[in-house]
Design a protein around this nucleic acid. Structure first.
Lengths: 208, 208
DNA sequence: AATTCCAGAGAACAGTTGTTAACTGCATGG
DNA sequence: CCATGCAGTTAACAACTGTTCTCTGGAATT
């Protein structure tokens, strides 16, 4: 079925990966709209023109990065929301999961946060669409929770969006305190947890 | 007292304003880290070297824009939170105020949203500091509300931060639907209102 | 009235950028 | 085994960048 692709395709994919990785690294301290094509190829060690074999432009590369960065988040969403024992425990587990993901993929998170409102339209749209997919996913998960009995679709989507945005903001906070002492990072986790808790309380009394 | 500054200083301030305005306009479709000094001076119609008479670098100009953009928001915060009759009415009024501010200063709002996580460190820090001041201000306002009886300082600041972030996110949503039909903009306002309402409900039951 | 000051102009600098064209070598499919 | 395809190279292009130094005209100070 899965035709083992030849030596040729393998090499191409390898350079493509190298380009994506180099770009992601360079984007740690600048934004996509200032990322030069030559800058990327220089970092990889290939000729500038080789870039065009893989991407039409740096904006194109950016869109590819969006898919990559947010696809890795979908499994996290799943495991965060699925089992529903104690509400507070679920929240602390979610915050820990976010902290772990940020620690494991800081560049991806930074990229999304930076380019969500960045200067490159196609990339903004790609991020917006992916986040909307996220919200739909969370909404579907919420709908199965018995606590959501009586909720209409609009309100469920509103709550899902609130959760998604909250997750992203929490991730950003962890990113900013990445090199800070453990103590401060714990304080951030603490505040994020309380925010989520307040939202959950609001959720519980929504139908009053 | 206020020494009327001479013709000389007046002209200098005029060019400075022109530089800031031109930069802000250019930043509508790119980010600060890709904004060139020559680009700005060309738009104003002065020699590139004139730039240095006003700013050390484009990053420096960015910091000046931050002060300008966020200072104009402080009065809004005040009028939003001060009188406290009906909770729901206060929320809809706040959302309307945000919509108005975005319609009146779209470029400023876009700039803040874009550069909050952008590629220029000094600007990120300036925005972070100003937003922290905002949160403190909101916290002080909240503390006087009788509904905040029994709240400790940490929780008050947590809630204030939540409100501030929510305001900014709402502003971003209005920005994205700026050219969209009136109907969609009303839908955004509707969802934003419900979000705020849910948070307010959580606030009311926080001490249970 | 003579002097100082300084916002802005002008020219030149070494480097950088995206994009084009024609090329090379090698894995691939007939 | 040979011809085709195609990832990556090389060279060149016009245009652009930030920064330096020197200069100028006119307001500000004395």
């Amino acid at each position: 079925m899965s035709h083992t692709l030849g030596v040729r395709q393998v090499q191409k994919q390898k350079t493509r990966r190298a380009l994506l990785d180099a770009a992601l690294a360079l984007l740690e301290e600048q934004s996509l709209s200032s990322l030069g094509l030559r800058e990327v190829t220089r970092a990889v060690g290939v000729a500038p023109t080789a870039f065009y074999r893989h991407f039409r432009s740096t904006a194109d590369l950016g869109v590819a990065l969006v898919e990559e960065a947010l696809d890795s988040l979908h499994p996290m969403i799943r495991t965060t929301l699925s089992p529903a024992e104690d509400s507070d425990e679920r929240i602390t587990r979610a915050v820990d999961l976010i902290a772990g993901h940020v620690a494991a993929n800081p560049a991806h998170v930074r990229f999304i946060a930076r380019e969500r409102h960045g200067g490159v339209q196609p990339v903004r749209e790609a991020i917006r669409d992916q986040l909307a997919r996220f919200a739909e996913e969370v909404k579907a998960e919420l709908a199965e929770d018995p606590a959501s009995a009586g909720w209409n679709d609009d309100d469920l989507l509103m709550l899902a969006g609130l959760y998604v945005d909250q997750m992203l903001m929490t991730a950003c906070l962890f990113l900013e305190t990445q090199e800070a002492p453990e103590e401060e990072r714990r304080r951030v986790a603490e505040v994020a947890t309380r925010r989520m808790r307040l939202i959950s309380i609001g959720r519980r009394h929504w139908l009053d």
